[in-house]
Design a protein around this nucleic acid. Sequence first.
DNA 1: TGAAACTTTTAAGAAACCCTTAAGAAAGCA
DNA 2: TGCTTTCTTAAGGGTTTCTTAAAAGTTTCA
Lengths: 221, 221
Amino acid sequence: MKILLVEDDPLLGQGIADALTYQSYIVEWVKTGKQAISFANASQFDVIILDLGLPDRDGLDVLQELRNNKILTPILILTARSTSGEKVTGLDRGADDYMVKPFDVPELMARLRALQRRESQQKSSIITHGSIEINPANFSLSQYGKPIPLSRHEYDLLLHLINRPNQVFSREALVDKLYNWDNEVSSNTVEVYVHHLRKKLGKDIIKTVRGIGYQLGSTSE
Amino acid sequence: MKILLVEDDPLLGQGIADALTYQSYIVEWVKTGKQAISFANASQFDVIILDLGLPDRDGLDVLQELRNNKILTPILILTARSTSGEKVTGLDRGADDYMVKPFDVPELMARLRALQRRESQQKSSIITHGSIEINPANFSLSQYGKPIPLSRHEYDLLLHLINRPNQVFSREALVDKLYNWDNEVSSNTVEVYVHHLRKKLGKDIIKTVRGIGYQLGSTSE
DNA sequence: TGAAACTTTTAAGAAACCCTTAAGAAAGCA
DNA sequence: TGCTTTCTTAAGGGTTTCTTAAAAGTTTCA
């Protein structure tokens, strides 16, 4: 875990840096707004601790510039400015948390942990298979990077096959997955959708196992 | 924006609920830990405000159970317990922020905005997407720099979509966000608002994913 | 080789889905 | 209160997708 500490007071800065180091953080300690911006641009931090009373420029400006530069790192403001209005301003300019000096070190540590925990919860699960790529979050599919629209059933069928790339599914099993029980379907729907998918994504996308059913095509080509 | 407020004190609870409603939040107010858990499981909230001194069980247990149930909603603890140790415990059990009573309402609002912002993919306090720009702090929207008035539900709907630009939301999910439990709606409201938004902001602002729901339009044009 | 079994392709009517409009109800405001 | 804006509901019409069936094609095996 890597932290950028922006604090011009030497004594306080050293104290925080020591405490962080003791908690096994990697600490980069800078004392001016200018340095803060260049460090934040140069390297990826897990959290930035920002004092507002800096010698060269106001911390709020630094904050804003960081956000304008698309630096999304969580930022915790640590300052003597304690009025409600100041807190609101700081948070609304893009800070993630705000602590007033004098502060309690264990609380700071706990707030840093909370920020990190949030950040690490980012998840994106994109499924790929050969040339195709499925993004379940938006039900979209692309092949060689080009988006290809699929209808609902086409998408469902493909997703089922792709979830178990090596399994052969019987027609009945696929119908069972695609439909709920009370509106069973009594014809060759599956064949028709396989046909549609092959038309859109290429003949080899789905392999037919004669007498048994269908299987996702092999990825190797 | 939908908030679950867990607070057993009737006076204080009413005060917070009113303040939140005034800020256009959809508020679900419950008074026990048990209710908190069932509501959190039943619907998707943007933030949970949690009092620790509940009548039926300790708020920290509620917090832990929520996290165990894989409810990742940001949680802000709002309590009279003000020692450093109590704050550390609360944050380390999975809360995202911690405020001590008595508290300042504007600060609470700013912290809620910060929590939401963190959760959305947008990190700056002013949200932009293509030609439009939203400032959640004062509910304003502009396109190409020109302010465009939106009704409350139009605004809510757009804000939801814009918070996760790549996700497709089903009609049901959107209805769930736009209304609280006791005045559910039973018709095509979402379609109608989508239509209004498209009329005001252009056809491509919202994309429909047939059979699934709606998604923010792509920014590239 | 020829029949049987199985699979692919095509096409068209049916169904589902979404958009649009409008009007009465409700809520907000002076 | 009366006026204006916003909300909810419902219905019509246009479009896409689904289902079905039948014809055409392919593989298997006696």
